[in-house]
Design a protein around this nucleic acid. Structure first.
Length: 354
DNA sequence: AAGACGGGGTG
DNA sequence: CACCCAGTCTT
């Protein structure tokens, strides 16, 4: 029970030590320059599963291009995906795009400060909901991510497996009890900063921790063993040949991926599944699949690309075609300059080479 | 509850 | 190469 866990935990002293440290040491980040809920929202979506240093340049470009919910709502999806190119988890961008359109349609362009309404927006789950409510609207709502679970698992010596959904629920209950009612915005951001700079996953800097005297893990020397997290399963490799098919005009054959699933709506060079097709049969397979005649050229290296759940093992080939137009609606012929305006996943940016 | 869904950083 | 990470959606 939460009451038992918080026995002998000095909530007020903890809050005071944490917030004092935060006000003197908080990181200056682009999304902390105002409390504009839209900027907080965009930052929180970008920060899902992504490091601060990676996000900063994307956030700046994104806010310059789409300063308001209206500008983002009116943008073409392909353009939004282009802004997201390289960040990964592209459904975040597509969901955010859909969600700002919901805000414009249903809330007159004002981001709702009510929990249920906010949480109903596409891509806004329990964490983001709590982050926006606390950071932008100063409501005492927990915003529990892996970072927060790490900090509190150590502070309160909790050894539940943080990979389990019920454990996250548990931490939400704990944070709801502990969170500052005076300044929930600073409280949640302080925990995040603490987790990012001091209470780090490996070799935490306990000796300079502002809340060291509240930490039960440090008291018993268990900080390195927490949090407990079950291992992810190993990824399965999939073997492909990626074809850089060029015609006499110097245009390349590129393909738009399906609107659902992996890398939805992103562009790529056509990929031949080598588990089903022998190298010698590629032209025949390509004709049957896409209706385009190609001549396989020379090998142009290889690429291994690791995703969370699978690995692409790709042989890259140059190829030629006489085609100057294509019928298959997945395909199009594009010049290098045209390709640069379209969203490609990192793997195919590498294959492209420019 | 488990799997799908990207990419970069670290030791 | 193994492991880590500012989650959400679907099944």
């Amino acid at each position: 029970m939460v009451e038992d866990i918080l026995q002998n935990f000095n909530i007020k002293a903890f809050e005071s030590d944490l917030l004092t440290w935060y006000h003197e040491n908080k990181r200056m980040l682009p999304w902390r320059e105002s409390r504009d809920p839209y900027r907080i929202w965009v930052s929180e979506i970008m920060l899902q599963q992504t490091k601060v240093d990676t996000v900063i340049p994307y956030f700046k470009r994104f806010m310059e291009k789409y300063p308001t919910v209206y500008s983002l709502a009116e943008a073409p999806e392909e353009e939004v995906l282009k802004e997201w190119e390289g960040l990964g988890y592209y459904s975040r961008a597509r969901n955010l795009h859909t969600a700002v359109q919901e805000v414009v349609e249903n809330y007159g362009g004002t981001i709702p400060d009510e929990k249920k309404e906010l949480g109903s927006l596409k891509g806004v789950g329990p964490y983001t909901q709590g982050a926006i409510l606390s950071i932008a609207f100063n409501q005492p709502e927990p915003a529990v991510d892996g970072n927060v679970m790490r900090v509190f698992s150590r502070l309160l010596l909790i050894n539940d497996d943080i990979a389990r959904p019920r454990t996250k629920k548990h931490f939400e209950t704990v944070v709801r009890e502990v969170i500052s009612k005076e300044d929930p915005s600073s409280f949640n951001q302080a925990i995040m900063d603490l987790g990012a700079t001091i209470c780090t996953p490996k070799s935490p800097a306990c000796l300079v921790c502002p809340v060291l005297e509240h930490c039960r893990a440090f008291e018993v020397g268990a900080q390195a063993e927490l949090p407990v997290k079950s291992k992810a399963k190993k990824q399965k490799p999939i073997f492909y040949a990626a074809l850089k098919v060029k015609n006499a005009d110097g245009n390349y054959l590129i393909e738009k991926r399906p609107e659902t699933g992996l890398l939805a709506n992103m562009y790529q060079f056509p990929m031949v599944p080598l588990s089903e097709v022998a190298l010698i049969d590629i032209p025949k397979w390509f004709k049957k699949e896409y209706g385009v005649d190609v001549m396989l050229g020379k090998r142009d290296g290889d690429l291994k690309h690791v995703f969370s759940h699978l690995i692409w093992d790709i042989e890259i080939y140059e190829a030629e075609t006489d085609a100057i137009e294509v019928a298959d609606n997945r395909l199009r012929l594009a010049s290098p300059d045209e390709m640069k305006k379209l969203p490609f996943p990192v793997s195919h940016l590498r294959i492209r080479g420019f």
